[in-house]
């Protein structure tokens, strides 16, 4: 690690934080709309329209955070971008196929001939699932340093399933906030199933990661690290229980016309994602290509980073402000998506 007082020392750290922020916000925001996309396979025709209406104004901006995350990797860490993307060639292609399919299906299903609509629905769902699985698979390969043994690929595939389950949980939580009536009740059922799968996924990843990667094992299970880090799994467990309790109590609350808790499962899931993200970030730091290239080795020249940083400082807060503005404009139940 170079001298941190030096621009070549602190600039890469700042951009690692910006990249992390981009990826985390992406995972949460596009996570819920990918989740909704996966869940439409379980919904009736009318429900599909309502579910897609609930993500209509947002999905495009959500996906922009992926471009920010990948953009920082591309622009601030140009030496790593090629290595990471080369190592993930096929899963990246699969994810892009998924994102393209769902992105266009969203628009086509309203605009094309009625007889084509079921096909666009299928594309929307399959694309969402494919993107989620591919993202999890890539994360898994990153954790094991891109070594493609059968064991590692199985591990990566399991992360893919776990992440897809996590996205479904986010999606169900989103529908709880944005929809009501029967659809809201079905979202409770979906949420409860996804909650179990997500918990299973996180436990599996947390156990397998340190076993597969010696360095990560040492980082977590040394004294005093293990005591300092203990709050992460402990809080995650509490949040899971909290979300489970909330999901269990929601149907009876609906019976009483009480909707004060509709937001709880979504918020708890977001908190779980944030904690899991930090656990992973701690495991991987400071590597950008695990055990091969750290953030300082991969960074662009300081004069380029300074220029990007100026843009980030000036423009990113504005971007965040109008992202919030857009969510505020479309606040409340998505029934308000009538334009009269």
């Amino acid at each position: 690690m170079p001298e941190l007082a030096n621009p070549t020392g602190w600039l890469p750290l700042i951009f690692m934080v910006v990249m992390g922020l981009g990826v985390l916000v992406y995972v949460v925001l596009d996570g819920y709309d990918l989740g909704v996309g996966i869940l439409i396979s379980l919904a009736s025709e009318a429900e599909k329209d309502a579910m897609i209406a609930s993500i209509g104004p947002f999905w495009d901006a959500n996906e922009t955070w992926l471009v920010l995350g990948i953009g920082v990797l591309l622009t601030a860490f140009p030496l790593a971008h090629g290595i990471v993307m080369g190592a993930l060639y096929l899963p990246v292609a699969a994810m892009l196929l998924g994102l393209i399919l769902r992105g266009v299906a969203f628009d086509f299903r309203f605009k094309a001939q009625d007889s084509h609509k079921p096909w666009w629905n299928r594309s929307f769902c399959a694309g969402s699932l494919l993107a989620a699985l591919a993202q999890g698979y890539m994360l898994g390969l990153l954790v094991v340093g891109f070594e493609r043994s059968a064991r590692n690929m199985l591990f990566a595939a399991c992360i893919g399933l776990g992440l897809a389950a996590g996205y479904c949980l986010l999606g169900a939580g989103w529908l709880l906030m944005k929809c009501d009536g029967d659809l809201q009740r079905r979202a409770v059922v979906w949420g409860r199933q996804a909650l179990w799968l997500t918990a299973l996924g996180i436990v599996g990843v947390s156990v397998a990661t340190p076993l597969l990667n010696r360095q990560i094992f040492d980082k977590w299970f040394a004294v005093p690290n293990i005591f300092l880090l203990a709050p992460i799994p402990a809080l995650t467990l509490i949040l899971f229980i909290f979300a489970g309790v909330a999901l269990r109590s929601l149907p009876s609350r609906f019976d009483r016309q009480s909707h004060g808790w509709d937001w709880v499962p979504f918020a708890a899931t977001v908190a779980i994602f944030i904690l899991a993200f930090h656990g992973l970030a701690y495991s991987l730091f400071p590597w950008i290509v695990p055990q091969r290239m750290d953030i300082w080795q991969a960074a662009a020249a300081p004069e380029s980073l300074i220029l990007i940083l100026a843009g980030v400082i000036v423009v990113l807060p504005v971007n965040i402000a109008y992202t919030i503005f857009s969510y505020w404009v479309f606040r409340g139940k998505s029934r308000n998506l009538d334009y009269g």
Binding site: D60, A61, E63, T64, V67, L68, G71, V72, L74, T75, A76, P78, L79, H81, A300, A301, E303, S304, L307, I308, G311, V312, V315, L316, N319, Y322, T323, F325, S326
Partner: peptide
């Protein structure tokens, strides 16, 4: 990358978020 990076980054920052959010 030192040249292309900032230009692409500014496209994301100044254009993509603007159009996607207000779309």
């Amino acid at each position: 990358g030192n040249i292309a990076g900032p230009l692409l980054a500014y496209e994301v920052l100044t254009a993509f978020f603007l159009e996607a959010s207000f779309l």
